[in-house]
């Protein structure tokens, strides 16, 4: 492997790492996957460091010296289907090896893989809102209203994601609308408990998973990532509480 090939190989390894981070893998696993791929490709030494928004890797080999690459990772979503596919790909690369063209094609294929269709997700928002509404003690009327607001929130969120880029602002608008509609439904006596309706919608928006995962990160030694996630989730939770309260203050 000469210098140019090593750079190219690292580039593809970084592509896989970047996709993993973008689709919600834990940093420990991202580091491990990139390191394994690099070592399998003939590097004698591979040092990978990653936090949620950035990843850097250096590899060293006698024939090609040392190469370093860095990636900035902007937005992350949780897409576990892609995670599985990337896991299969990295195993295949480690066990059998692959040409650059093959790797490129496989990575592009995974990147382009579609998720559930829009209408499935609309149904899903209703499912999550409705079930958590009852889970926390709402009645059937609350559940129906909560599910309907969930559907509206999905439409609103899709629209907001196309216009504004800031996810905190999106969350503020979505939660303000959600809180307003919940209060309006109780005001028009369509449902009985505004807080029970809202809790179903809140579960969709509140970063509870990120909050728990941030502590998991810290427990397993990725302290920086844990702290970043912790602060992000607290900030988002404050914004969401503010949003749901705006309407409550007006309806008093």
């Amino acid at each position: 492997m000469d210098r140019q090939e090593a750079e190219q190989y690292l580039y593809y390894a970084m592509n896989i790492g970047e996709l993993l981070l973008e689709n919600g893998a834990e940093v420990g696993r991202v580091e491990d996957t990139v390191r394994r791929i690099c070592l399998a490709g003939g590097a004698e030494r591979a040092d990978v460091f990653s936090i949620t928004s950035n990843m850097s890797a250096s590899i060293y080999g006698k024939e090609f010296g040392s190469c370093t690459q860095t990636r900035r990772v902007l937005n992350t979503v949780n897409d576990f289907h892609k995670l599985e596919e990337l896991n299969c790909l990295s195993r295949k690369i480690c066990e059998e090896g692959m040409t650059f063209e093959e790797m490129d094609a496989e990575i592009e294929k995974i990147r382009k893989e579609p998720g559930y269709s829009f209408w499935w997700l609309v149904f899903d928002y209703a499912l999550v809102s409705g079930s958590f509404c009852v889970f926390f003690g709402g009645n059937v009327r609350d559940m129906i209203v909560s599910a309907l607001i969930g559907v509206l929130l999905k439409f609103l969120m899709t629209f907001m994601q196309k216009t504004a880029a800031n996810h905190l602002f999106n969350a503020l608008i979505c939660s303000a609308v959600g809180g307003f509609l919940a209060n309006l439904a109780v005001f028009a006596s369509l449902a009985d408990h505004a807080d029970m309706i809202s809790i179903g919608n809140i579960m969709l928006l509140i970063p509870g998973v990120a909050f728990t995962n941030s502590l998991r990160d810290m427990f397993s030694g990725d302290t920086i990532t844990g702290l970043i996630r912790f602060m992000e989730s607290i900030l988002l939770a404050v914004i969401i509480a503010l949003g749901f309260n705006i309407a409550g203050f007006y309806f008093r």
Binding site: I202, M203, G208, F211, V238
Partner: peptide, 19 residues
């Protein structure tokens, strides 16, 4: 783990702060 995730307490905490 979703049913256990403390989303509601996290929200209630921030809600109390807001009030």
């Amino acid at each position: 783990a979703i049913p256990l995730i403390p989303g509601a307490p996290l929200y209630r905490a921030m809600n109390s702060l807001m009030h």
